[in-house]
Design a protein around this nucleic acid. Structure first.
Lengths: 219, 219
DNA sequence: AATTCATTCAATAATTTCATTGAATGAAGG
DNA sequence: CCTTCATTCAATGAAATTATTGAATGAATT
């Protein structure tokens, strides 16, 4: 085999992986299942797409080797194929945020309209967790909470927050977190809590980063 | 702006970056300019494509924020936009190698036909460099050598090796290296040298990795 | 064995990406 | 100011990707 021909095949194969990453819906799926294994129907619902379409995108991701499936009872659970896939995904997301001005503008724009959303850093939270000075809320869907969450965090999915406000202490500081920089559930929870007289902040970190850095988790 | 609408825009923007990565020619270009800044014409020649086509692909990469240009005299030099881009590229390549069996088969196949190509590790080479026991050859095109190379390496581009064999010492061990795992010039040089009675090995590392790890370079 | 239902597949039309060609641009140097 | 020439642009047809629809599959349960 000639060198040129070989190279062509090699880059074509590599592009199978990158082509799998080249679609916005598939990126959203990756971001979602970076949380843990979930079935097709749940994915379809979360990304607001017909099941057949979600399934087709999942096939592409699977063929490229980025995700794997596992049968559990009636359901096919999809998850990232390896830790390296998570590394690639988060470094891609990172490049998008730092190098692509449209993205940073978009995020800034969206967040600024929430006027003065207060953030809390990782270290600050760790300190307050030690002193038991904080009430930490995981606002992701409970399925994702059950797959793993920050230690001592309470699960109150964003959807349920309105009807479960009585569980939230008024004397403690509240901190909410969700999936990552692209996830807005924590933002909305914090805004809602502050409107209702709580002292709420958003964690700068999110669960995947927290886990990646070896900080305390449960389950 | 509704959350769903915002998310859609966000992932669409992120996909601009991943779409830029989703083409085999653009991957080859990235692998090439990971060496250092080079002009369009040189890129076109290396990837064996018409200049206009290379230019269009470079525009895509530029618009996505993955590469940058700089004017020097008559030429437009293209280079990776940041260190993070190199990290993304090499982790993508890494996933391709470890998760995609077609790629590993392809590489193994190609290399095994070269029957017993001997490798030398980074640490082994560093030791031998200290004792001056090794003759290190950079087989990349001289333009790339001039943009930076491993300390004490001699530039003998693969094309010129045949007519410059008399420069190569017979008593010392020879080590050749080139661009990276996808680069085959070092393989071919080593095979050629061994056929001609030299003791040649291929460096497991390549220049970009060497540089990334802060090992000694020149120029 | 039949039924259920989560998931996948197949076909299609709409959209996007791509390579090719030849012309346009525009900075550098005379 | 004019020429050169590296690079980009614009137009085109061919190829690939995508969403949608409805049917097929096949494992789990009855």
């Amino acid at each position: 085999m000639k060198t040129r021909e070989f190279k062509k095949k090699l880059y074509k194969q590599l592009a199978v992986v990158t082509k799998a990453l080249s679609n916005p819906i598939r990126l959203e799926i990756l971001d979602l299942i970076a949380q843990g294994a979930v079935p097709v129907e749940y994915i379809a619902e979360q990304i607001d797409q017909p099941v057949a379409n979600a399934s087709q995108h999942l096939q592409v991701l699977k063929k490229s080797g980025l995700v794997e499936t596992e049968r559990r009872g009636k359901y096919n659970y999809y998850r990232l194929a390896s830790r390296e896939v998570y590394v690639v995904w988060s470094s891609l997301r990172n490049i998008g945020f730092t190098r692509n001005s449209e993205i940073s503008n978009l995020l800034e724009d969206y967040r600024s309209k929430k006027e003065g959303l207060k953030m809390i850093s990782r270290d600050e939270l760790l300190k307050k967790m030690e002193k038991n000075e904080v009430y930490l809320i995981d606002v992701r869907p409970s399925e994702e909470y059950e797959l793993g969450h920050i230690r001592d965090a309470v699960s109150i999915p964003q959807m349920e927050l309105g009807e479960r406000l009585d569980e939230v202490p008024t004397e403690k500081e509240i901190v909410a977190y969700c999936r990552g920089p692209l996830c807005l559930m924590a933002d909305e929870a914090v805004r809602f809590l502050n409107m209702n007289g709580f002292m709420a902040k958003r964690l700068e970190y999110s669960f995947p980063e927290w886990k990646e850095n070896g900080l305390p988790i449960e389950q």
